[in-house]
Each structure stands twice: as C-alpha cells, then as structure tokens.
C-alpha cells in the first residue's frame, strides 16, 4: 500500500486510469469458456465423420450444395431483413415523438419501449399466439364485424411471424435511434426550414442522414436478434417454416449430428458477422456523410 502511494504521488497523471490487470479474471473466463468452446466448434466442423476422426470440409460442402440447407439460410436472412425494415419504419416515429415530448411523457415512452425488452421472450411470443390464433383478437373482431366467415389463418404465417418479431425486437431499434436523434443539433432543422425546405424535405435531407449512426446501430442489433430468435420463430412460425436456429438445434439435439450442427453454427455465425460488418461499414460511410454536411 505504501509503495503504491509513493508511486501515485510521483506520477499524478496516472491516478485517472486503472490497472489493466483488473480485466484479467474476465479475460481468463472468456478465454476458457467462450473462445475455447468456439474454437472447438470450428475444429469439430472441419471433420467429415461424427466421431471427428477424418479431417475435411465435408460438412460445409454438404451444407453449401444442399438446396434445402441453402433455402433455410436464405429464408432466415430474408426474415431478418423484413423484421429490421418493419422495426425501422415503426420505431423511427417513436424516437421522433420521444425527442419532442416533455420529460414525463418521455419516461412513459421509454417504459413502454423497455417493457418487451425485459419481459420474458416466451411470454411475449405467447401473447402473439393469443392475438393471432383462430380464436384470437383479430379473428374475433373481424368475425363480429361480419368481414369474414371462417377464422383467418395468421399464426404459422410469414406475416404473423414478422409482426411478432418486430414487436419483440422493437426496443433494440428505438433506443439507439433516441440517442442518435437527441444528438442532432435542433438548429439544423430550423436552418433547413428557414432556407425554404418543407418538413418532409428537412426530414429526409437533414434528420434522416444525421441520425444514420443510430439507424445503423439499431438495424445491426435488430437484425442479429431477429434471425437468432429461436423461441418466436418456432412458436409463431410453427413447424412449416424452418430457420437456421431450429435447423441447428434439430441437427444437434434430435439427430446428434454434431459436426454438421457445428458447421451450421459456423456458417450462421459468419453470416451474422458479415451482416454486422456490412452495417458497420455503412455506418462509417454515414458518419463521414454526416460530418461532411
């Protein structure tokens, strides 16, 4: 303790930072329980047989030449895009409204947005089964209005799944948007208006480009969450639609085909990383764009 005190006094600038060694325990935990397992996953995926004795790219070739597997990957990536778009279109106005509201209303909006984030995902998904089901709200309203005779099938459809996922993932889009819109200098919108631009023009030419970092951050989080949302995909999507997480789980758990499941994981992981990298490249472009203006 004494020597530390002397060292501090001789180097006063140092007191504002902490010893990097404090990160060691978590670093070690991550090395053992995060990096090693993922390395083992990669190792296993590079074997052609289930006993993991023959090296080879067999599992990857199997996946990439199988139309069924590719269709699963494609529909998963498409699902993510649809959910992200829905969240952006619905979430941006929430963030906009938040920035124009008084402090009380702001807290209320945040609480509403946070509620699904903190409620159990099974509960949230279950709610959508109640809404979209044969005896659910939408069907009973439409039937009582006499618009439909027999209940519509909404659960186990792509549209129903996108709606459910959009609701479940909305907070991930809205929170970064609120932060980004809050950082925009309000004078810029006024300047745009006084130079003769209308509200819509100001929105698309000033606000939207300047909030691009938030849009990118929100899209990244929403996309990554939507494509891995195992529970919602399986309960609202049903058995007819197969996405990557369920495919992976079936191969690993039911069929015990670990090397193939490992290869699916790695492919899925790289697909996610590629999307994240794409978004962050766009993000850097957007920031440059924002600065240039």
């Amino acid at each position: 303790m004494k020597s530390a005190t002397t060292a501090r006094i001789t180097a006063p600038g140092d007191v504002t930072s902490f010893n990097l060694g404090l990160a060691l325990p978590l670093g070690v935990a991550f090395a053992i329980f995060f990096v090693l397992p993922l390395a083992q996953l990669l190792y296993l995926s590079l074997h052609n047989d289930t006993a993991a004795t023959v090296w080879g790219l067999g599992q990857y070739i199997k996946f990439l030449t199988d139309p069924f597997s590719l269709a699963v990957l494609g529909s998963t990536l498409l699902l993510g895009a649809e959910v992200t778009l829905a969240c952006l279109v619905l979430g941006y106005p929430i963030a906009w409204l938040y920035q124009r509201s008084g402090s009380r209303l702001q807290t209320l909006i945040i609480m509403i947005v946070l509620l699904p984030l903190l409620t159990s995902v099974v509960v949230r998904t279950f709610a959508w089964i109640v809404i979209l089901g044969r005896q659910g709200i939408i069907n009973s309203v439409l039937q009582s209005l006499g618009l439909i005779g027999t209940p519509l099938r909404m659960i186990y459809t792509q549209g129903g799944l996108v709606a459910a996922l959009a609701q479940v993932q909305m907070p991930l889009m809205v929170l970064p948007l609120i932060t980004a819109i809050g950082r925009i200098d309000p004078n810029l919108s006024d300047a745009s208006a006084s130079l003769g631009a209308g509200s819509w023009r100001t929105f698309f030419k000033v606000m939207l480009p300047l909030s691009m970092p938030g849009i990118i951050a929100g899209c990244t989080l929403t996309y990554a969450a939507a494509i891995t949302a195992f529970i919602t995909q399986s309960l609202v999507g049903g058995g007819q639609m197969l996405f990557m997480p369920m495919y992976l789980y079936q191969q690993a758990s039911t069929l015990q085909n670990w090397p193939f499941a490992a290869a699916i994981s790695i492919i899925f992981l790289f697909a996610v990383l590629a999307i994240v990298a794409l978004f962050s490249t766009l993000g850097r472009r957007a920031r440059g764009y924002g600065d240039a203006r």
Partner: peptide, 9 residues
Amino acid sequence: LPALAFGLA
C-alpha cells in the same frame, strides 16, 4: 454472436 451457436459450443 448467435447465442445458440455458443450454447452448442
């Protein structure tokens, strides 16, 4: 990262 991949790993 997809948490399911980590779960399997």
